[in-house]
Design a protein around this nucleic acid. Sequence first.
DNA 1: TCTGGGGTCCTAGGACCC
DNA 2: TCTGGGGTCCTAGGACCC
Length: 412
Amino acid sequence: MLSIRSWPETILHIDGDAFFASVAQAVNPKLKGKPVVTGHERGIATAISYEAKKYGITRGMRFFEIRKLCPECAFIESDYELYALFSHRMFEILRQFSFEIEEYSIDEGFMGLKGLRRPLNMTYEEMGKKIKDTVESNLGITVSIGISLTKSLAKIASNFRKPSGLTVIDGRSIETFLKQVPAKDIWGIGEQTSSYLKKLNVHTAYQFVMLSEDFVHKNLSKPYFEIWQELRGKKVFELSLEKKTVYQSISKTQTFHPPTNDKDILRARLFYHVEEAFTKARNFHYRVGKLHIFLKTQNFDYHSIEIKLPSMTSYPLLIRKQIEEGFADIYHKGTLYRTTGCTITDLEQNTTIQQTLFQDAKLEEKMKKIYPFIDAKKVDFGTSLFDKEAMEEKKVKIKPSIPFFDLSVIQT
DNA sequence: TCTGGGGTCCTAGGACCC
DNA sequence: TCTGGGGTCCTAGGACCC
């Protein structure tokens, strides 16, 4: 038996229902009430409207399968700027109630409600209803809301009734509620762990929280102990109120359709990813210590290499040679690759005093002058080291990538 | 479920040091 | 030459999330 007060803490979780598809319906009345799937540009389903879910369409399903299941289904291209706009509006509405808000993802957020009952003169349930109604009437999409004592409980609650659900779980209702929740629906417990739990005869969230602390420590790792505590009403996960500006890593990847074994294309793509990753790093004032580049084969094998940069830098031009060599290492002639990608890690926020140990400190200085123009897209680096015509012949559109032009261009 | 793209955190095990 | 115990750092890989 858990004995917990009704509201030691109060966290609200809000979740847009089939968010991308709902936004598409909100801006195009012709799509209202009709099956809609987004992700057309990639040929696979990204978001599926509730009307389309009825036909058995699931995430990742491909175009022709969707057509088979539901010929009248509207299959539309993603519009991330539009989604971001709706997301922004949703969080603006939340801010009318409280500033204690975590923007967890584009369509999900957490909110601290503790202490608002008196000033707003409402119960938590009334607050949830008010927020839900305001978002739905203003944006023309539906959202599901869960309110409980911790993030983990609020998250399960919002997922409990969908779409357009409102579920409130106070401290005294936790046990009854968790009996209705399969262990696999717990936030943070995925396929591996839920099948492991099954072997331990744990099938529901209730059975999970009834395990002894000792048992959880002995049989599961730290994240699961934290979830265990959260579901027992003890707050472990704090809201993170800051906008995301801190990164442990930045990555860029892209999958080809169809897969390719063309060395030039793969290399060009990889360099482009590196440029993009570093551009993002510069936007957040990071210098980079390590670069990981990889090629993924058709059987999902990774050919990868880690490149330790000679010194922290934000300018990939300076490590072009290392990338070139790294690529030569991981590329196997004749192998078909489906994906290229890179991840940069060992990120360090720039300080005002920039000490660089780079052998060529002057070059680094030049980069500092050149790259702002590149980032502002004021310079057109249309030429690549590769033969443009050959590229066109291959009917592959590759954006020009900065590392391909000659370093001598920027000699001042 | 024959499979996008972008992230986070944790653990085990090896290398190295005292 | 053999022996013991403990700490730290790094890397690879797993699991999970939207």
